[in-house]
């Protein structure tokens, strides 16, 4: 795990999570599996919350969630910004 921390005085917090894997790793006959894995994380529910519950929780704070997409070598999950607590 590598963490790149670029802290400043802004009231926002931005996080980007990138996995060094992608569609180039799709096993034979499973084209799109990397894409679907990322989609399930970014636009699906977690074990404890349904997708609807996640959408409802993020909505009032205007948090932006974007499914950065899948490339052959990297998958960018969920870059997002929100206002820090307070």
């Amino acid at each position: 795990m590598k963490v790149i921390a670029m802290r400043d005085g802004s009231p926002l917090v931005t996080i980007q999570v990138v996995f060094g894997t992608g569609s180039a790793q799709d096993p034979a006959g499973q084209g799109g599996v990397a894409w679907m894995a990322t989609a399930m994380l970014a636009s699906g529910g977690s074990r404890t919350l349904t997708y609807k519950q996640i959408l409802d929780a993020l909505f009032p704070i205007g948090a932006r969630r974007s499914f950065g997409g899948v490339l052959p070598d990297v998958q960018r999950d969920d870059p997002r910004s929100w206002l820090a607590a307070g």
Partner: peptide, 27 residues
């Protein structure tokens, strides 16, 4: 594809060794 295949891919590929996290702003 099936959910099982997707989960299998996740378990095999989403590992600490290929993870980069970037943090910015006033955390």
């Amino acid at each position: 594809l099936t959910v099982a295949r997707v989960k299998e891919f996740y378990l095999a590929q989403f590992a600490q060794e290929n993870l980069t996290i970037a943090l910015g702003g006033g955390f």
